[in-house]
Write a protein that binds this DNA or RNA. Sequence first.
DNA 1: CCTAATTCGTACGGTGGTGTACGAGTTGAC
DNA 2: GTCAACTCGTACACCACCGTACGAATTAGG
Lengths: 201, 201
Amino acid sequence: MVELPAGTPPRRADARRNISAIVEAATRCLAEDPGVSMSAIATAAGVGRMTLYGHFESRSALVAVVVEHALDRAEAELSAVDVTGDPYDAMTRLLDASWTVTFRNGGLVQAADQALSPDLLERAHTQLVDRAKSVLRRGRSEGRFRKDMPLDWQVTAVQSLLHGAATAVHQGALTAARAPGLVTTSALALLAVPPAPSSGP
Amino acid sequence: MVELPAGTPPRRADARRNISAIVEAATRCLAEDPGVSMSAIATAAGVGRMTLYGHFESRSALVAVVVEHALDRAEAELSAVDVTGDPYDAMTRLLDASWTVTFRNGGLVQAADQALSPDLLERAHTQLVDRAKSVLRRGRSEGRFRKDMPLDWQVTAVQSLLHGAATAVHQGALTAARAPGLVTTSALALLAVPPAPSSGP
DNA sequence: CCTAATTCGTACGGTGGTGTACGAGTTGAC
DNA sequence: GTCAACTCGTACACCACCGTACGAATTAGG
């Protein structure tokens, strides 16, 4: 699940298992509460706090690994999306995949903000957003998406919807089953070319 | 600016001035960073930390007053909005006012979440959201807003847009001048009845 | 088995925030 | 001008968390 950097001595099986458990638990915990403590993460992973520090030098180091791992996974999922063909359909597919990523990672961004270097974060963000941007740009040039708003704002708006839905689900105000559909419908409504400005009576 | 509860002995002029300064500084600080320290708030208000504790028993007490104050102000601003007439226009006016409120208070909600009782928060939230809900409900029944999404989700979605725009402005990714227009356009696009699902070729 | 790797409890020092106590200095109000 | 109200620095106890040190028990792997 979690690859170790090459060049390090091979870990024992239980150690590798624990590292995986820690990273996965940390992802879950940080997604829910960016300020969660190391103790809580250790408990959630089913290991002692000391074991955690045995594998990760510091909170920052753990967050860095978690973010990198989440980023790799997100990158893999999003790059598997077919973004060709009709921009509407492409965006729909992209939104579905983005929903999964957003819901799984949630508050991770905020945790990363406090613990990681800004430029690293910037690159990570760019990497993920660029895909959506290019679909959006294509849809705009093909006349399928509205162009009367800055492209960056459209991206921000869609992200806001994703984030809002994820929060609502975490709070129990929305079921996880309905969320992706609602996000997609809403996002497309946001991006679609508006019907003629209804000049007549 | 900040009213004192009746029945307490009248404060001296400088005390009242300081209390106002504290509440206003706290509003600003908490809106930017919900986890800001009491020291930082005191400094921002131009008073010593001890003066702050002289007027507010605890962090919770301060947050409570700040929230109450912000709530009163928001209530006043939103209740002044004309929500009659065409639902589109009513919603536009409401969104403009909501933008101001959201931008000014920002992270206050998060600070309140950690410091105040859930039921108080619930009531506060309900109070503010109900107005939008009723406009939305009317617009839906009049066929001006789409009904194929839960009303609660539409509210959540619009709030997400407001919040996302506020964050973007705070980060400098969007100018405060453009934000309200973009939020309004986007929110209305979200709520509007979609153009016929284009069945024919 | 045997050994080295690994786990993990306890205990400690450091940091940063909250809230309290004391008290000296300052200033508004009458 | 006087006095009480107010300001505000310092100092302290307290707590939660981070990160380290030590060491004993456990366990994977040959």
